[in-house]
Write a protein that binds this DNA or RNA. Structure first.
Lengths: 149, 149
DNA sequence: GTAATATACATGCATTTGCATTGACTTGCA
DNA sequence: TGCAAGTCAATGCAAATGCATGTATATTAC
């Protein structure tokens, strides 16, 4: 039996929590809205395509995507299915593990990611970059880093 | 024809964006998981119950909840339906507007919110409070405030 | 007063997500 | 070797969400 000691949050901590949730929600939904308005797929597709692009010719295993993007196993399974159906990735049999598969970015997928970026980038700038000085941005990044650690 | 000038984000801005999304996602899902593990309803129920508690005896109109919690109209409609079915809120006809209704917290709803808080509070402390000094927390809160503005 | 428009809320239908389970293969170990 | 346990991925079913639209009432313009 473990006793985990977790004291109650201060008002300041609560306020920070609320702002974290709200600020992210607001920013994220404005980015998603921009993508949708431009006729692009949802943001998570971008993340997948980017990971695959970074992974290069060997692609990635679904479980690698799962941990890289903090998705659930069944979420990856169905997301990959949809992206494949759109022609942006290909599944290959995995040589060294017959249970698995390799997910490879297609040229169309590469193009899609690039086009999404042309909408995504200004949306990030509008929601984050334009609201803070570089020094403030750095501070925010560091503090968020501490939260994730 | 408007020209909206939005330059591309710096690498620092992009990193901050990614961390904002990830940090919130991580923290939020750990809070949600704690609630679920304790047998409580999802977090958004807490938000609704708290808003209704703050609103007092007259309760709130659905559209007020919508803007207070940044939800979609149909989301509120169905969320309220579920919470009502659980017995945590009551719907009253609205005197001055026959299209509308008033949502009132029930005693069971008040209790539910209190019990949720006993899980929610330590989870906030664990995801935010315990990771930062008070000064850092204040700085983070202020910077997130700028993002929301 | 009445017609046009706007607001409040609900809902049918398709898509997505969550949860539990299954099927297939691998690994560890007797 | 062989089998128990573990890992990778898919899927059936239920719940939640998104989108478009519907219904009712209120407000505005004339």
């Amino acid at each position: 039996m473990y006793i985990t000691f977790m004291k109650n949050p201060t008002d300041l901590t609560i306020q920070t929590w609320v702002r974290l949730v709200r600020a992210q929600q607001t920013a994220l939904s404005s980015v998603e809205a921009a993508l949708k308005k431009a006729g692009h797929p949802p943001l998570v597709w971008y993340d997948v395509l980017l990971e695959l692009e970074r992974a290069g010719a060997d692609g990635l295993r679904p479980f690698e995507l799962e941990s890289a993007l903090l998705l659930r196993q069944y979420g990856v399974s169905r997301l990959v299915e949809r992206i494949e159906k759109a022609g942006y990735l290909a599944r290959e049999a995995c040589e060294d593990d017959a249970r698995g598969q390799r997910l490879i970015l297609t040229p169309a997928g590469r193009d899609c990611r690039r086009e999404m970026w042309s909408t995504y980038a200004p949306a990030i700038e509008a929601s984050v970059g334009s609201k803070l000085t570089p020094a403030q941005t750095k501070t925010l990044s560091d503090l968020l880093g501490k939260l994730m650690a």
